[in-house]
C-alpha cells in the first residue's frame, strides 16, 4: 500500500507544489463564497439548505485541479473548491442556490445537487454512494468508444462509505478496471454521528486492499500533501493502475448544513491535529515561503470577494422559475409522455 508522509511533516523545506498558489486561490474563493452563501441563508434569502465544505477545501481543490477536459468528476456535498477547480462557474452555483431560472438546474434542483454532465461534471443525487457506479459507466463507455487517457474522480464521506451502494460501486469499478479515483474524506462526523457508530475497522484505507484498489492516506489539512497524494493517485489511475482510494482526514468545521450548530462536536476532537483549518495552514505557508506577502494576500481577497459579489448579485437579479411556464415533462421523448387526465 502506498503510504504518504506523516501528518504534520509540512513541506516547508522544499519548493511548494507547482499548483499551490492556484489551489490556494480557489480555496480562498470557496471560503469567501461559502461564507456569503451562509449569510444569505441566515438572512432568509436561500430556500432549502446550504452545505459548505469549511475545512475541507484543500482536499476538495486537489480533487478538481488535476482533472482535464474529457475526465469525469462526480463531486458531493463539500466540494465547492473541487467544482470550481474543475471549471464550474461561480454563477452556476449562485444561480442554483438562489433559484434562478437561468441556472443549470433551472429551479428543478438546488444547492449541491447540481452539475453539468456535458462538461463532465455529474449532478449528484442525494443517495450516498449512488454516483460511484455512474462514474464507472461513463469510464466504461469512454473505453468502449476508444477514448484514451481519461480518468474519473468521485468523492464521499466516511459516513457515505458505509452504504451498500458504495460497496457495489467500488467493487464493480475494480471488476471493470476503470481509471477511477475515490477520495473519501473522514471528517469525523456524518451529520451528528461520530465514527464509532459508523464503522469498526481501524482505518478506512485498509479497505482498499479488500476491493483490489491502491490506497493512500493524506492529512486533509495540509494542502501540499493533498496536492501530492491526490495528484499522484489521479496520475496512477490515468496510467492504467487499479482504482485508487484516497482517505483524507479532517474535521468538518461547520454544521452539517447551515441549519445545524454542530453542538455535538466535542471539545476534545476540536483539539485534534486533523481539526486544523486547511485554509489557515495554507495561508501560513504562503507567507512563510513568501509566495505572497500580506498585501498580496489582501489584494487577492479583495478581488475574490468582488467576483463572489458579482455572481451573487447577478443571480439575485434573475427571474425565478414560474410553475405555469414550466415544462412538466420528465421524459425526453415527447410522444411517450403519459397523458394523465
Amino acid at each position: 500500500m502506498l503510504q504518504t508522509a506523516e501528518r504534520g511533516a509540512s513541506a516547508s523545506k522544499k519548493a511548494p507544489h507547482e499548483k499551490y498558489l492556484e489551489a490556494f486561490r480557489i480555496m480562498l474563493q470557496t471560503r469567501i463564497f461559502e461564507d456569503k452563501l451562509a449569510s444569505l441563508y441566515r438572512g432568509g434569502l436561500i430556500t432549502g439548505g446550504v452545505y459548505i465544505g469549511k475545512g475541507q477545501e484543500a482536499v476538495s481543490v486537489s480533487c478538481g485541479i488535476f482533472l482535464q477536459k474529457g475526465d469525469v468528476f462526480a463531486p458531493l456535498i463539500r466540494d465547492q473548491a473541487g467544482r470550481s477547480a474543475f471549471g464550474e462557474p461561480l454563477l452556476d452555483v449562485a444561480r442554483t442556490y438562489l433559484g434562478s431560472r437561468s441556472g443549470p438546474m433551472r429551479g428543478r434542483d438546488g444547492n449541491i445537487h447540481r452539475g453539468c454532465p456535458k462538461a463532465g461534471q455529474l449532478a449528484m443525487i442525494s443517495h450516498l454512494g449512488a454516483m460511484i457506479p455512474v462514474v464507472v459507466g461513463k469510464l466504461l463507455a469512454k473505453r468502449m468508444k476508444g477514448e484514451k487517457g481519461f480518468v474519473g474522480l468521485t468523492t464521499i464521506g466516511e459516513g457515505g462509505m458505509q452504504t451498500g451502494a458504495t460497496h457495489e460501486g467500488m467493487n464493480i469499478a475494480a471488476v471493470e478496471h476503470v481509471p477511477l479515483v475515490i477520495v473519501a474524506t473522514n471528517n469525523h462526523y456524518a451529520y451528528s454521528t461520530p465514527n464509532d457508530r459508523q464503522f469498526a475497522c481501524a482505518d478506512l484505507v485498509d479497505r482498499a486492499k479488500g476491493y483490489g484498489y491502491e490506497g493512500s492516506s493524506v492529512d486533509g489539512t495540509d494542502l501540499t500533501q493533498c496536492l501530492e497524494v491526490i495528484g499522484a493517485a489521479i496520475k496512477r489511475a490515468r496510467a492504467g493502475r487499479p482504482p485508487q482510494l484516497v482517505v483524507a482526514s479532517t474535521l468538518r468545521l461547520a454544521g452539517h448544513g447551515e441549519h445545524d450548530d454542530a453542538s455535538y462536536v466535542t471539545d476534545d476532537i476540536r483539539r485534534e491535529p486533523f481539526a486544523q483549518d486547511s485554509l489557515q495552514r495554507a495561508e501560513q505557508l504562503i507567507l512563510e515561503q513568501e509566495l505572497l506577502d500580506r498585501e498580496g494576500l489582501q489584494q487577492m481577497r479583495t478581488e475574490l470577494a468582488a467576483e463572489v459579489d458579482e455572481a451573487v448579485s447577478t443571480a439575485q437579479q434573475e427571474d425565478a422559475p414560474v410553475g405555469s411556464e414550466e415544462d412538466w415533462c420528465a421524459v425526453s421523448t415527447r410522444e411517450l409522455v403519459d397523458q394523465i387526465p
Binding site: A130, P133, V134, G137, K138, A141, M144, E168, N171, I172
Partner: peptide, 21 residues
C-alpha cells in the same frame, strides 16, 4: 457478466448511457 450488484449494474448503465451508449 457483472458481479451480483443490481444497484451498481444499473448505475453503470446510467453512466454509459449518458456517455452515448
Amino acid at each position: 457478466n457483472t458481479p451480483i450488484s443490481e444497484d451498481a449494474m444499473v448505475g453503470t448503465a446510467i453512466g454509459a448511457a449518458m456517455e452515448g451508449m
